[in-house]
Amino acid sequence: MIKKKVLLLPILILVFLAFNLLLEAELKKVLSIGSNQPDYLFMTVTGVVLDEEGNIYVADAGGSFIRKYNPEGVFIKEVGRYGQGPGEFSNSIGPLLYDGQKLYLKDDLNYRIAVLDKELNIENYIKLKGLRASLAKIDNLFYQISTKPGEPFPQVEIYNLKGDFVSSFFDERPDFFKGRTFSKKDYPAWVMFSRIVMAADRAAEEIAVTFTNPGDKIEIFFYTKEGKFKNKIEMDHLIKYKFSEFRLQFPPKYPKKSDQIIVWSIHYMGSGKILLDYWIVRYELEKAVDEKHYLLVVDRKSGRLLHQELVSNDLKVIGVKDGMLFGAEIAEDIPKVVLYKLDY
C-alpha cells in the first residue's frame, strides 16, 4: 500500500508540473513594427494579415491607409487617404482579410469593401448594404453581423462577392435572457448584451459564433458556410462568474461592486483549437477600476480549456493564423503592430 503511494506521488507531481507548464506558457514576441517615423507611425490599427511570403499588411482606421511591410518589418508601400472617392478610405476601416489571392478591406462609412491585390492596387469595390459589424470570408461568401429588423437580437448575414444578400442565420440567445420577456424600454440593454463575435475557418468551411457578454458559461456555436447549425460547445469561465442583474435594468442601477466578462473576439488557431480574447472588468459604482486581459485556448471539439494566459491590457488582438497572433499595442507611448508566436 505504502509502495503504491510512493510510486503515485512522483506521477502526481509530474502531472501537476506539466499542467502548470501548459498554463504558464508565454506568448513569444517575434516582430514589432512602429516608431515615430511616418512609414512606421500608426494611429488606430484595425487590420493585420500575413501572406504566404510573410509580408505583413496593416490597415489603420485613424490614418485611413493600408500598408505593406516585408517579413522583417521593413516598409514597402502605403496607399489611401481620407475620403469617399477611388483610392480613399473613411476613418472606420477594418477588418482586413486575405484569402490567399486578394486582400479585402471593409470600409464602414463608405459602405464598401475594397478589393486589393498584394501590391496594394485597388482592383474593385464591393458595395455593402448599410452598416454591419465584423467581416469574414469563406470561398465566394462574405459574413457580416447585423441586428434583426425590429428586434434587439443579432444575426449573421451571408453575402455573395457582388455584395448581394444571400441568407442569414443565428437564433441563439444568451443564457441570462432565456425566460425573460423583452420590453422596448430595455431595448439598448438587450442589444448590448446580445452582441456576438464570429470567426471563419476556411479549411473547415465553418463559422464560429459566441456571445460578447456571456452568462454563467461561454457557449460557442458552429455553422456550415451555408449557415446550417452544426453543434455547440460550452465551457466554464476562468473565474466563476454570475451575470449581474443590475445590467438588465435600463437605466442601469449600479451596485457598489460588480464584474463583467467580455469575449472581445474569437479566432480559429488551427489544429482544432480556438482562441478567445477574454476580459474581466471590475466595476466600482459605474467606473471600471480593474481590467484583466486573458487569452483562452479551448479545444474545438470538447470545449475543454487547454491554456489560459494573462496578457497586457495594451494588447489588442486582431487576428490569428498558422500559430501566429497579430495585434496592436502601445509600448513606450508608441503604437506598434506586433506578431506573437502562439507556442501552446
Partner: peptide
C-alpha cells in the same frame, strides 16, 4: 481643408520636420 489623415501628416512632416528628425 479636411481630416488630418496620414497623407496630410506626411506633407506636414516633409515641410516642417523632415530635415531635423
Amino acid at each position: 481643408r479636411g481630416v488630418l489623415d496620414m497623407s496630410l501628416l506626411r506633407q506636414i512632416y516633409e515641410i516642417v520636420g523632415v530635415e531635423s528628425i
